[in-house]
Simulated scan of single mutants.
Amino acid sequence: MDASLEHCTATMVTTLFDQAERRDPERLRHWNVLVDGANHQLECLAQEAARRGVSMTSSSISFMRSNRHYPTPPCQ
């Protein structure tokens, strides 16, 4: 699990995929991803999975958000 207010979503997704590949280098397990449901996160996940040729399942969950909004850079 990881999060950042300093790095864009695409950078964080790449980092998470790097971690997953270190844990399962032969891709013997099915990868599941849990996100807060933001469309840009799902798009970045799908793009990175396609780039790496990885099959995964993503699940969205909604959390009550605070009244502070932190802008998220778009997926590159």
Rank of each mutant, 00 (worst) to 15 (best):
M1W: 08
M1L: 13
M1A: 13
D2H: 07
D2C: 02
A3W: 15
A3L: 12
S4P: 02
L5D: 14
E6T: 08
E6W: 05
H7F: 15
H7R: 15
C8Y: 02
C8I: 06
T9L: 04
T11L: 07
M12T: 02
M12Y: 01
M12D: 02
V13T: 09
T14K: 13
T14W: 11
T14Y: 14
T14N: 13
T15W: 00
T15E: 13
L16G: 09
L16V: 02
F17C: 09
Q19L: 15
Q19D: 15
E21N: 11
E21I: 03
R22G: 02
R23I: 05
R23G: 00
D24C: 01
D24I: 04
P25M: 07
E26G: 10
E26C: 05
R27H: 09
R27A: 06
L28Y: 02
R29I: 03
R29P: 01
H30K: 10
W31T: 07
N32I: 06
N32M: 08
V33P: 01
V33G: 00
L34F: 09
L34W: 06
L34T: 08
V35A: 09
D36I: 01
G37Q: 05
G37P: 04
A38H: 15
A38N: 13
H40I: 00
Q41F: 00
E43W: 08
C44R: 04
C44L: 08
C44P: 05
L45Q: 01
A46M: 06
A46C: 08
Q47D: 12
E48N: 09
E48P: 03
E48K: 04
A49N: 07
A49D: 05
A49F: 04
A49K: 03
A50L: 09
A50D: 12
R51S: 14
G53N: 06
V54R: 12
S55V: 13
M56D: 06
M56F: 15
M56G: 03
M56C: 12
T57L: 06
S58T: 10
S58E: 04
S60V: 12
S60R: 15
S60I: 08
I61G: 00
S62C: 04
S62F: 11
F63H: 10
F63V: 14
M64T: 15
S66C: 11
S66D: 12
N67A: 07
N67Q: 10
N67H: 11
N67I: 10
R68V: 10
R68H: 10
Y70C: 08
Y70E: 03
Y70M: 07
P71D: 03
T72N: 12
T72K: 11
T72S: 14
P73I: 00
P74F: 11
P74Q: 03
P74V: 02
C75E: 04
